[in-house]
Design a protein around this nucleic acid. Structure first.
Lengths: 125, 125
DNA sequence: AATAAAATAGTAATCATTACTGATTTGGGT
DNA sequence: ACCCAAATCAGTAATGATTACTATTTTATT
């Protein structure tokens, strides 16, 4: 990631301007409206490098897809088993990081995910 | 899961008797020592049904494999990025469940995973 | 403009997991 | 004990998200 590329720029723009937690394929579909002949492999490669670099977050909620998040500040995620949406939640503490250290484990990141039914699905059904 | 099967019995035995958080393939290899001609598909199907049934836990730490845990009591996981091991940690609170409810989200399960370097890898390298 | 490194498009390969099919096993009723 | 329908299985083929590969294009520097 030494050189600029308009593809990476467009990927970051798409990711910045959504409040969802999209998959690589969703991002691909969106970026194609900016760069119609962009390759899916390019999207995957850039997302993977950006994530390794700490510029974005990669999130796995066990639905078979990797999800990406432009927001790298610490926050938890609420994953709806009904509609698949992922919402953010701000915890003001990180008890697992503290417990980890006490146990001699050096945590880089802690991930908090709640699985359940979101407000929208609860009222709709 | 209405009928008994010695395959499912063996899968549960293997899972009960390890303190690791094995993948389907690892379980398959172990069960083959009890039932040499068991099918990998049988292992996957049983793990998936047991997990859907709440008898075991399925855990995804983003390493490309699904992991399984015989212990269904609430606990957090520490995943070492170096050796890939997963250790248990007992949190005495569940702040995400509480926050979720306040936000109108009905959580079934909350998952806590810390990513970092385990004590063993830290001292070895 | 010339050059080397980096990035890309397009396509092929990987591989964990799931689906399918015909045979075997289980359990309840007789 | 035997029958039968439902459940489960072994073995194999298919799926599909992700990664790898290659020839070409773009970027940054001189």
């Amino acid at each position: 990631m030494k050189n600029y590329s308009k593809q990476r720029e467009a990927i970051l723009t798409v990711l910045r301007e959504t409040d969802t937690h999209p998959t690589a394929n969703w991002i691909y579909e969106q970026v194609r409206e900016i760069i119609p002949n962009i390759s899916l492999g390019t999207v995957y490669r850039n997302l993977s490098e950006l994530s390794r670099n700490g510029d974005i977050i990669s999130l796995n909620v066990g639905d078979g897809f990797e999800h990406f998040d432009y927001d790298t500040t610490p926050h938890a995620h609420l994953h709806c088993k009904e509609c698949g949406c992922i919402h953010d939640a701000r915890l003001e503490c990180d008890p697992l990081a503290e417990l980890s250290k006490k146990m001699g484990f050096m945590p880089d990141t802690t991930i908090y995910v709640a699985y359940g039914i979101c407000q929208n699905c609860k009222t709709t059904n």
